[in-house]
Amino acid sequence: MTTEKDSNPLSLDNQVCFSLYSAVNAMVRAYRPLLNKLDLTYPQYLAMLVLWEHEGISVKTLGDKLHLDSGTLTPLLKRLEGKGLISRGRSEKDERVRVLHITQDGESLRESAMEIPELMRCKVGTPMESLVQLKSLCDQVYHELAVEKS
């Protein structure tokens, strides 16, 4: 038996986008108390994750990895630099290219952040296999929509 709600394409309950939106908001709220201890916002945390993994990358590469444009990224990086976590410099190969480096304080923060992924896995309470599958589906949706934009 099909209910009117099941067949209504405009029903909120039938919108994948709303489920993703709600899950993202809940995830960011769950991160907040953990990141407050590090004095980081969620976007700053994401930037630091990339920088911890790829020391000395360009601002453009960071933007590509985070799917952010320079207008969004520049203020975020200025705040991280103001906190003493990163330094922004010029590439030795091309002076037009801005490169990012982790400071000693930024490296120290990395140690404090090490427990966050496991704490979040515990908060979510979903088996790792399901989380890996969810990530893969989200990546697939992003790829399909981002390719469509280009």
Rank of each mutant, 00 (worst) to 15 (best):
K83M: 13
V147W: 02
Q104Y: 10
V24S: 11
T2E: 13
E55I: 01
N8F: 10
A26G: 07
N8D: 15
V141K: 05
E144F: 09
D139E: 15
E81H: 05
V24A: 14
P9H: 08
L80C: 10
R79Q: 14
R90M: 10
Y31Q: 08
Y42T: 01
Q140T: 12
I86W: 02
N25F: 09
L73I: 06
E53F: 07
S87W: 01
G63Y: 08
Q133D: 15
P127I: 06
I86H: 02
L119D: 10
S7F: 10
Y21C: 08
T126P: 00
S11C: 08
Y142C: 10
E111S: 10
A23D: 08
V24L: 12
T72E: 15
L46C: 15
V28P: 02
K5A: 14
Y42K: 00
R88L: 14
Y21V: 00
S136M: 11
M1W: 03
G84T: 05
D64Y: 03
A23G: 12
N25K: 12
L109V: 05
P33I: 02
S7Q: 12
V147Y: 05
L49D: 08
E107P: 00
R29M: 11
V59M: 15
N36H: 09
K5N: 10
T61A: 15
K65Q: 12
G63Q: 07
L40S: 06
Y45Q: 01
K5Y: 08
S150K: 10
G89W: 02
P33E: 04
R79L: 09
L40G: 05
T103L: 05
T103G: 06
P127Q: 11
Y21H: 12
V124S: 02
D13Q: 11
L131W: 00
V132S: 09
A26H: 07
V99M: 13
